[in-house]
Amino acid sequence: MLEARLEQADLLKKVVDAIKDLVQDCNFDCNDSGVALQAMDNSHVALVSMMLKAESFSPYRCDRNVALGVNLTSLTKVLRAAQNEDILTLKAEDAPDVLNLVFENTDSDRLSEYDLKLMDIDQEHLGIPDTEYAATISLPSVEFRRICVDLMALSESVSIETSKDGIKFSCAGDIGNGAVTLRPNTNVEKPDQNVEIELTEPVALTFSLKYLVNFCKAAGLSKTVKLCLSNEVPLLVEYALAGSSYLRFYLAPKIGD
């Protein structure tokens, strides 16, 4: 059986909220190392890869590998019943029809229990190759969100160019052009505000802003976001979570003009 207890329901609520508009039905693959989810959006432009490591739960028990086929819209309805600070426990049998969710509020001695019906999801297993990225940029997640939202007001696409001097986001639209450049910046007192650039070669790629703005829903999960780029490969947008867990998004580039 599976039994996984999260100190705060908030984590799962935010993860599901960040991915539910990209992917609808997906398997939560549970094994002794944790709970993983990998799903591509219908248009094959974006891929979500979530890993909640066993260390993120306390306790965590998973006797047999189990795939929990979940409709995220339905899961969202159930999670709405959980307060952010509630203790959340996920439970499932070895061959489950339902996922049992328990929300505990220790202050008010309230215990809520929900059973979510599971579905059989025949999901293609895709391997993500290990990639040595030419550029890795770490920046505040709210800054990244702001840039994407601001540029989307002008255009559907953004060009991202990295050099050792900085990272430039630029777009061209019907009403005009826009560009935001961030230079490497270290703030000892507020490391969350740092912009760090590691570069082995300059990169220039174009992406759909609609997807990037969608990924930015995860900004509440982590103060910083990591962008990994190489020419002609998908962008990796990573939000690191506590306990070496993560929420990653991959986005296929656009080519040509």
Partner: peptide, 14 residues
């Protein structure tokens, strides 16, 4: 406008 590539091509089916 630029052409959107398909992510499917990048990932190995296992």
């Amino acid at each position: 406008s630029p052409f959107q590539l398909d992510l499917y091509n990048y990932f190995i089916k296992s």
